[in-house]
Amino acid sequence: MLELRPNCEWCNRDLPHDATDARICTYECTYCAHCVDTVLHNVCPTCGGNFAPRPIRPKAAYQPTLTLGLINDPASATRKQSRWSAEQVAALSEQLRAVAPADR
């Protein structure tokens, strides 16, 4: 199950569970769309993969026999920051951004 991390790991902007501009990589690194587009250039600084819009977890459990939804599985409150320097991010982005995600 996705953690739904509460912030952009680059600029530290709040990304609540229902943020439509939250982006995640396959390892769930979480960034805002602005940082993905302008800083990372769709290259995750951790894995080198691309980003996709983070799904929004429904607030309620709509199936009466299942305990799903945000009410039962809340978003994470643990804030994370990228461990990579601006220079490291720029170097990896430069190396991979022209390569299609499926070919990385």
Score class of each variant (00 low, 15 high):
residue 32 C to R: 06
residue 83 R to V: 08
residue 33 A to R: 12
residue 87 E to M: 02
residue 80 K to T: 15
residue 16 P to I: 10
residue 26 T to Q: 13
residue 16 P to E: 13
residue 16 P to D: 14
residue 63 Q to L: 15
residue 54 R to G: 01
residue 41 H to M: 09
residue 86 A to Q: 09
residue 103 D to P: 00
residue 33 A to K: 13
residue 58 P to I: 10
residue 74 P to R: 07
residue 71 I to A: 14
residue 102 A to R: 15
residue 98 A to Q: 14
residue 70 L to D: 12
residue 5 R to F: 13
residue 91 A to C: 01
residue 3 E to W: 03
residue 92 L to C: 05
residue 25 C to M: 03
residue 102 A to W: 10
residue 59 K to M: 08
residue 56 I to A: 06
residue 37 D to G: 02
residue 57 R to Q: 05
residue 73 D to R: 06
residue 49 G to W: 09
residue 13 R to D: 03
residue 22 A to I: 04
residue 3 E to H: 07
residue 84 W to T: 00
residue 52 A to T: 15
residue 70 L to S: 10
residue 102 A to Q: 14
residue 83 R to F: 01
residue 87 E to V: 02
residue 59 K to T: 09
residue 63 Q to K: 13
residue 15 L to Y: 03
residue 92 L to G: 01
residue 39 V to D: 02
residue 11 C to H: 07
residue 76 S to V: 09
residue 17 H to L: 11
residue 94 E to T: 15
residue 88 Q to M: 06
residue 49 G to E: 06
residue 50 N to T: 15
residue 94 E to C: 05
residue 85 S to D: 04
residue 36 V to G: 01
residue 12 N to E: 11
residue 65 T to E: 14
residue 66 L to E: 09
residue 24 I to Q: 02
residue 78 T to F: 08
residue 103 D to G: 00
residue 16 P to G: 10
residue 35 C to K: 03
residue 39 V to F: 03
residue 25 C to E: 03
residue 49 G to F: 10
residue 14 D to Q: 10
residue 3 E to S: 10
residue 5 R to C: 07
residue 93 S to H: 05
residue 86 A to N: 08
residue 4 L to Y: 15
residue 51 F to V: 08
residue 86 A to C: 00
residue 42 N to R: 05
residue 20 T to W: 03
residue 98 A to F: 12
residue 54 R to P: 02
residue 65 T to F: 11
residue 72 N to M: 05
residue 100 A to E: 13
residue 28 E to G: 01
residue 56 I to D: 04
residue 93 S to I: 04
residue 50 N to G: 15
residue 62 Y to K: 08
residue 86 A to L: 03
residue 87 E to C: 00
residue 57 R to A: 01
residue 70 L to A: 09
residue 42 N to P: 02
residue 52 A to D: 13
residue 63 Q to H: 15
residue 59 K to V: 10
residue 78 T to D: 14
residue 45 P to M: 06
residue 83 R to A: 07
residue 22 A to N: 04
residue 35 C to W: 05
residue 56 I to P: 08
residue 40 L to H: 08
residue 38 T to G: 00
residue 75 A to Y: 12
residue 91 A to D: 08
residue 75 A to F: 13
residue 103 D to W: 06
residue 55 P to M: 12
residue 12 N to H: 10
residue 70 L to K: 07
residue 98 A to R: 13
residue 60 A to N: 11
residue 4 L to P: 00
residue 19 A to T: 04
residue 13 R to P: 00
residue 74 P to K: 08
residue 51 F to I: 10
residue 93 S to G: 15
residue 90 A to V: 00
residue 12 N to S: 11
residue 86 A to V: 07
residue 62 Y to N: 14
residue 68 L to S: 11
residue 37 D to V: 02
residue 99 V to D: 05
residue 90 A to N: 03
residue 59 K to A: 12
residue 38 T to N: 09
residue 82 S to A: 12
residue 77 A to N: 13
residue 73 D to I: 13
residue 34 H to G: 12
residue 78 T to C: 05
residue 14 D to L: 12
residue 71 I to P: 00
residue 59 K to C: 01
residue 67 T to N: 12
residue 38 T to S: 04
residue 47 C to I: 05
residue 30 T to N: 01
residue 81 Q to I: 11
residue 33 A to M: 08
residue 100 A to L: 12
residue 44 C to H: 02
residue 2 L to N: 11
residue 26 T to S: 13
residue 74 P to H: 07
residue 40 L to G: 04
residue 75 A to I: 14
residue 97 R to Q: 15
residue 97 R to I: 11
residue 79 R to E: 14
residue 59 K to G: 04
residue 23 R to H: 13
residue 41 H to N: 11
residue 8 C to W: 02
